[in-house]
Amino acid sequence: MLFEMTGITKRFGGLVALDRVDFSVREAEVMAIVGDNGAGKSTLIKTMSGAHAPDDGVIRMAGEAVRFRSPQDAWKSGIATIYQELALAGKMTVADNIFLGREIKRPILGIPFLDRAAMRKRTAELLNQLDVHVPSLDSWVETMSGGQRQGVAIARALNMDARLIIMDEPTAALAVAEVRKVLDFVTRLRGQGKSVVLISHNIQDVFAVSDRISVMRHGRRIAVRETRTTTPEEIIGLITGASEVRAAAS
């Protein structure tokens, strides 16, 4: 088990966003998180990525208990996150964004100068790997299309050389061809031995790439299924609570 959360609870004032959630991800696995709006998906991954601190519960990375006090801590533990809103700095270039917070430095007399040449080279490599085309490496990110920006965000996560990559609704705003690329990329990551946590409300995408599916509802994880052995109908039923109703009625 690469990553494990046990009994995680998170409250915002009087609202319980996560209620004793258990969650785990194996090595080289794609785990999908599905659920209706407000089910707690985003809160869960923000807790995983270090943006929120849980009020209760234990997080374990590769067997060791960890506490993330900031996104930097999570990154140091090997978790890279691609947020739904991408978290890109609009008025900065592609290279700037990819290396924000983890710039390549070239110390001269002890002063850490930016190694722009190295960063540009690596940026070109990463974009190539992902098959992302941008008009110019010096363009400002805010001038690019949604798909290109998604590519930059993914390149940034790739650059972090993480063991676990979290993607929050990566295909939500993309065209069909772009979605294909993202899903291929997810599969490729698994092939490299990395794990991916994927939030999506698109059941098709989920069934296309995931190994297991966790269903969130009202802040609880109510079910985990192996993708091979379940069906879209069952998952949707779990998301909407239809199966509960059916169970209660029978």
């Binding site: 996150t81 700095a89 609009g90 008025k91 900065m92 924000l100």
Partner: peptide
């Protein structure tokens, strides 16, 4: 030429995003 300069720009651009990617 220094990483701090990048951080300054990032915080000025979008403080929340800068925090999310790990900048103090």
């Amino acid at each position: 030429q220094l990483p701090y300069g990048r951080h300054l720009h990032a915080v000025g651009c979008d403080e929340r995003s800068a925090g999310l990617v790990g900048i103090n």
